[in-house]
Design a protein around this nucleic acid. Structure first.
Lengths: 164, 164
DNA sequence: CTCTATTCATAAAG
DNA sequence: CTTTATGAATAGAG
């Protein structure tokens, strides 16, 4: 096996050596790591019944967002629909995950009566709650903005409660 | 090696078997996975120059938030301070990470002139941008709420640009 | 994209 | 908390 000087054959990042990576490999790394991060989020949500919201801005300026079980459910805080049962076993969890994925095209399509574009933006993505914010711009961003407004209001209410 | 029926010696979750976990092990799992998730976020940010914001609501109702390179830098979108250089090598990255961690007690303490409570809320956490939102309530939440307001405004601006 | 090598994450046990 | 075992994540190459 031939390998450039200064590198190892390791998968994970070796802090010690490694040549300065070029822009392309940085992009590959970002994509892979973002995918891994989103998967971790879904695992945390599904396995532990947690609600997770993430926003990632890539260096190139692209924006990616993930909500699990849904961005709405997370941003609604405690007002949303109940989280999938806590004590289901793993088989049920997988089935639920599959159902959720199946159901989402419709669910998202209904949102804001725009539909088609949202469904298209999910093409080729592994999980239904993955969506390129840029691609979803027209349909999703206004709703996202409203959801953020609600989150902000909730946080404020909490803050006010803490500061009588 | 003795092991309960229905389990394997594997680390990762085996979907096929595994007895229904009790509440305690679910808690351990959540904590470990949340820590792992936050670490992944920091890696994505540091290694790829991305900005990442996460909010996690545990089933028990606890809230955890993480911003990398900082919640502020992420929520300010493109108005914030420049992200740490993209092409630094890993050694520099580690040093920067260490500096950031060192610097944060002061940085956060200055915020909102409340200080002490914020510094205490970081106790025992590995990275400076980890903070239990619940513990940070008084000092951090109002600022968090303002930051969310700015994020919302930015998202709206983006949405308006897309919808002339 | 696929393949491979290596470290990482982490469930379970001590 | 520490150790151990094993599948998962992922950098680099093809």
């Amino acid at each position: 096996m031939v390998r450039p000087r200064g590198t190892t054959s390791t998968g994970r990042h070796r802090i010690e050596m490694s040549l300065r990576p070029d822009k392309n490999s940085r992009q590959v790394t970002f994509s892979k790591r973002r995918a891994g991060l989103f998967k971790k989020c879904s695992e945390l949500s599904i396995l532990c019944g947690a609600r997770v919201a993430v926003v990632v801005f890539s260096e190139a300026g692209n924006v990616f967002a993930l909500g699990s079980p849904s961005m709405e459910a997370v941003l609604h805080l405690h007002d949303g629909a109940p989280v999938p049962a806590a004590d289901v076993d793993d088989r049920e969890v997988l089935e639920e995950m599959f159902r959720a994925r199946e159901a989402t095209a419709e669910q998202v399509a209904r949102m804001n009566s725009i539909g088609d574009k949202v469904v298209k933006a999910q093409r080729g993505r592994r999980y239904w709650w993955e969506a390129d914010v840029e691609a979803l711009g027209e349909a999703e961003l206004p709703e996202f903005a409203r959801a953020l407004g609600r989150l902000r209001a909730n946080v404020r209410r909490h803050a006010d409660r803490l500061l009588p």
